[in-house]
């Protein structure tokens, strides 16, 4: 039994909030496997620029994506101070490199609003909606969209 108050309410979704490229994002906690520090990945040949490489996660080889780069934002510079959110996306395990994890939110379904027109088209397609919390606008990522189809994989 979990003691946290909102977890028992089926209407409440738990979201992991984080910052990268100066913006706030969140993803559903159910897709998060673990959060870990940066370790130097092995480079992958001919990979898209946002693919940082692969790391060993308890015997599994897991690719690391720079989320900011993936969203078309300024890529992360100082990687040593950043964190990797290991997420299960469809049947794959992928590490998302972000600046920092900020919060775990409990948000009712009604608290998730449609994506406003302020994002670029490329970014919008990867968002499910936004959450406003303490006057911050937090973008809810559609993780399935982070893994590109083959045609723009090398873009």
């Amino acid at each position: 039994m979990r003691s946290s108050g909102f977890a028992t309410d089926p209407d409440i979704r738990e979201l992991v909030a984080f910052r990268t490229a100066g913006q706030d994002f969140c993803i559903d906690i159910l897709s998060v496997r673990e959060i870990r520090g940066w370790s130097r990945p092995a480079l992958l040949p001919h990979a898209p620029s946002y693919v940082q490489g692969v790391i060993n996660l308890r015997g599994a080889v897991v690719p690391i994506l720079d989320l900011a780069g993936r969203l078309g934002l300024e890529p992360i510079e100082d990687k040593d101070r950043n964190v990797i959110i290991v997420a299960a996306i469809q049947n794959r395990t992928v590490g998302l490199l972000v600046e920092a994890v900020t919060d775990i939110l409990g948000v009712p379904a009604s608290g998730i609003q449609p994506t406003p027109d302020l994002a670029s088209e490329a970014t919008r397609s990867m968002l499910r909606g936004v959450v406003v919390q303490d006057s911050r606008l937090i973008r809810l990522l559609d993780v399935a969209q982070l893994l590109p189809p083959a045609d723009d994989a090398a873009a």
Binding site: R40, A42, P45, V54, I55, A60, V61, V62, R92
Partner: peptide, 19 residues
């Protein structure tokens, strides 16, 4: 978790835990 890469057969984990 990723896909096929031309020129690369697979990966391995070395003694220091790196790939």
């Amino acid at each position: 978790n990723y896909g096929q890469i031309p020129g690369i057969a697979a990966a391995t984990v070395l003694g220091d835990g790196s790939v």
